[in-house]
Structure formats: C-alpha cells, structure tokens
Simulated scan of single mutants.
Amino acid sequence: MSIVTCKVSSIEKLNDFLYRIFLAPQQAVSYKAGQYVSVVMGEKDKRHFSIANAPSSEVIELHIGATPENSYAMQVIEKMQSDGQVEVEIANGEAYLREQSVRPMIIVAGGTGFAYAKSIIEQVVALKLTNPVHLYWGVKEQDHFYLEEQAKQWDETYQNIHFHPVVELADEQWQGAQGYVHQAVLKDFSDLSAFDVYVVGRFEMAKVVREDFVKQNGNVEHIYGDAFSFI
C-alpha cells in the first residue's frame, strides 16, 4: 500500500469531542465508498479512520472523535494541527459499498461511524442507485447526532433512503427508538436474509451485531464490516 502526503485543508470542531477534517492529497488517489485511511504516526504506528465522503471528491473528509483521555485520536489531531500535513494510506478495508448489488441495504453505525455511512450514502446518491437504504445511526445521548440534519435531508430528498436514529440513553422528550442500535434493526425486520448489511462501530459491537443478525436469517456473506477482520 503506497503512502500519500496530504495537506490539512481544515480542522473544524463540531462539538466537545468531535473534529471534522478535510485533507487534500498531494497526488491523485482512488478509493471505494466505505473504505478508510490509515494515518501514519510512526513506522509501526498507523491509526485508522473512516473516509466520510464519496470517491468523487478531490478531498478526504474525516470525522475524528478525540478527547485528552483518548490519546489514540487526540495525538492525530495534534499532529495535524502542528504539522499542517500527514502521511496516510488510502483505500484500506473490505467493507466497501457493493455497487453492483441490487439487494436492499442496512447500514448500522455507532457514534462517529456515521462517517462510514455518509461515504456509502453519498455514493448511492452519486450513482443514482435505487436500492432501499436503511441507515440506523446509534448514539449514547441525543446531542451526539452531530450531523443529524444531513441524515434527515437524505431521508426527505430520496425515496429509497430512510434514516432511523437510535438513542441509547434517551430522555423523556425523545420520541424515537431507544437502546442499542442493532436491536432497533431486529425489531423492524424479522427476516434479514434479503439484505446487504454494512456495520461500523467498536469491535465488541460489530461482533454482537453479526451474531444477532445471523440468528435472524442474516447471511454472513452479505454482512460487511472491517471490524470482523480483527475479531
């Protein structure tokens, strides 16, 4: 895998813990919707983040959740801020959008996994795919929906795209689905055999999602998630 130098075009803090970064590769690159970059921090230190935009763009968008307690991500932010550029491997991962598939899709995203979902949905829109797409975005608290308006806009604009927000620790005012995000999928679809499923989130989350979806007729060959390579 070749390493590409990227200029840091902008770093925007979206809330107390999340940064939106745009990188400008200094040479032509290609990748598939749903793949990730590995930021090179050292010879054997590469840190992985989902690409948050479709491949048609000339920039690479990242959503990085980072706090002082999370050194894995915070050190990357600090390096970008101080150096103004980073070296990355682009086009990593096998959980990319299967563009030729005509099966309906379920995307299960936890937290900043919305970046992964955003890349896939932008590509669905760009290619004018008509497959039904169900985006289940789960967060711990309602105010963690950092780009909720974008997700709502897809739902309102495109007949085949449906947004299902899920809050784990919901307050009394929340009217939507509550609990773990994948449980909302299981409640809505009793038979998952027809779906392509894309999963992004913590390793332990991905493991449980796959196990529970298979119990509900999900086809393991059509459940995609890069976390599965590590568990």
Rank of each mutant, 00 (worst) to 15 (best):
Q175D: 06
E61N: 02
G34N: 13
A28Q: 13
I223N: 08
S101D: 08
Y36V: 11
V214F: 07
K46A: 12
G176N: 10
F22R: 15
F189I: 08
V139E: 00
E89V: 02
H48G: 11
R202F: 14
V181M: 01
R103H: 11
L23K: 03
F145H: 06
W154E: 00
A227L: 07
Q173N: 11
Y180W: 13
Y36P: 10
P165I: 08
L127N: 14
E43L: 14
P55G: 03
F49P: 14
E61V: 14
V185G: 06
Q85Y: 09
Q175H: 09
V102A: 14
Q85I: 01
L192D: 05
E99Q: 15
N217S: 15
A126I: 04
N160R: 13
A73D: 02
G138I: 02
R20F: 05
V86Q: 02
L14Q: 06
Q100W: 06
K187I: 05
L192E: 03
H63R: 02
V139P: 03
V197R: 05
A52I: 14
E12H: 08
V208Q: 15
Y180Q: 11
E221K: 15
D143M: 10
K118N: 10
A24P: 00
E172D: 13
G65H: 13
P132S: 12
V209D: 11
I107L: 15
D191M: 00
V37R: 13
A151Y: 08
L186C: 11
P132E: 09
Y146P: 10
Q178M: 09
H222W: 08
P165H: 09
T67Y: 01
I60R: 00
P55D: 06
N131G: 03
K46C: 10
T130Q: 12
Q75A: 01
N53G: 12
E61F: 05
S193M: 08
V166P: 11
A170R: 00
S2F: 02
D16K: 14
D212Y: 00
F195S: 12
G93N: 06
H182C: 07
G201H: 10
I223A: 03
E122G: 01
F189H: 13
F49V: 11
L97F: 14
V59L: 10
W137M: 04
T5N: 05
Y31E: 07
V102H: 14
Q75S: 12
K118I: 06
Q26Y: 01
F189E: 10
Q175E: 09
L129Q: 15
L129F: 02
V197S: 02
F213R: 03
V214T: 12
A184D: 07
M80Q: 08
L62P: 05
I121Q: 00
I121T: 03
K215P: 10
E87F: 02
Q85S: 13
F17L: 12
D191P: 09
G111V: 03
V8L: 04
V133F: 00
V76L: 01
V199F: 06
S119H: 04
G218W: 04
L129I: 06
F195Y: 15
H164C: 03
L147M: 13
P165L: 04
H164V: 09
V8N: 01
I161Y: 00
M105R: 15
E149L: 10
Y116C: 05
E12P: 05
A95C: 04
K118G: 02
G93I: 11
